[in-house]
Design a protein around this nucleic acid. Structure first.
Lengths: 167, 167
DNA sequence: GCGTGTATCTCGCTCAACGAGATAATAGGG
DNA sequence: CCCTATTATCTCGTTGAGCGAGATACACGC
């Protein structure tokens, strides 16, 4: 399936590599459950958490997020997007700001309260994760970084193309 | 925040470690979107995909999954669980089997069709991931394995305790 | 200042998931 | 063996997230 160069020891190695694949999936499952706990603890739904994450990501990258962009990132239509922003605004976690240049647009900004809420809940887990990394030297960290980058790009690339194979 | 042993060079390192944290989150987001595409492509919902994953995990571990266990794994109540199993059964992806020992129980078994469906969709991404791993030597792979195991356990541990910190 | 295109919102609907309670089977005491 | 308590699942009615269709508000060229 995957185009290999030549004859390395295969079947035994392959099992060890599959273990990492399952491990990665287990991580995504656990982190998903953790997000769900955050949602539940704050009377929110999974989509609202995903929206906050997208908004904070954009803010870190220094980009404004309009309602439309947010909806696209979440895979919602305009009605659903309005609904999400309504819920978050009602909860005091974001605010609507009319676009200065184009007044049709609605820029969604996260309130300071949402940032604090997220830090309080995810901070410990992040700290623990950072702590884990101190056990590895630079070469090992580079491997972790490279592997995660590769998986992210493969999954993102799978959006286009048949499924991101042979990339 | 995280209890450190002694004085290593901090702030610069911390930024590099946070990059990995963000990378990990990006991976979970992308894999989540990939699951969503799988769901959409097969007329399913996110919960149905999570259910299939849980069922296949259990099968790999050689365990039977009753309706109750499945619902607990998904965080659904009994009504919702019945609903999920109904949908999956209607789609021909699982079958209900009355428990042999305790006939109140309903064991949910995945149909061969569901396994093939999953392999067809996720196979390429898995192959790509396994391929990525061949670029690393055993020490680097051990680092990746150890890091993922640590994050998984930290997130799982966060279910109990204040948030899995200081574990 | 009118028409076309774009961004967001409103309305009505569907269906996933919930709470409450019904149904069915096991386990144990008399 | 019957009766009750307990456990596992399902049924019924309701809530609300997200959808499709269309309304509304603004932008921009003519």
């Amino acid at each position: 399936m995957a185009p290999r160069e030549s004859g390395e020891p295969e079947s035994a190695d392959r099992a060890a590599e599959l273990e990492i694949v399952h491990l990665l999936r287990a991580v995504t499952v656990e982190l998903g459950l953790h997000s769900a706990r955050f949602a539940q603890a704050n009377g929110m739904h999974a989509t609202d958490v995903r929206a906050l994450i997208a908004l904070m990501d954009a803010r870190r990258a220094g980009e404004e997020t309009t309602a439309g962009r947010l909806g696209a990132a979440l895979g919602l239509n305009s009605a659903g997007t309005t609904s999400v922003v309504d819920r978050l605004e009602r909860a005091g976690l974001v605010r609507r700001v009319r676009g200065a240049d184009d007044r049709r647009k609605v820029v969604v900004e996260v309130e300071e309260r949402a940032v604090r809420l997220g830090q309080d809940f995810f901070g410990p887990l992040i700290a623990r994760t950072v702590d884990l990394l101190t056990a590895y030297d630079e070469r090992e960290r580079a491997a972790i970084r490279g592997f995660l980058t590769g998986v992210r790009d493969a999954a993102a690339g799978a959006a286009r193309g048949s499924a991101g194979l042979t990339g």
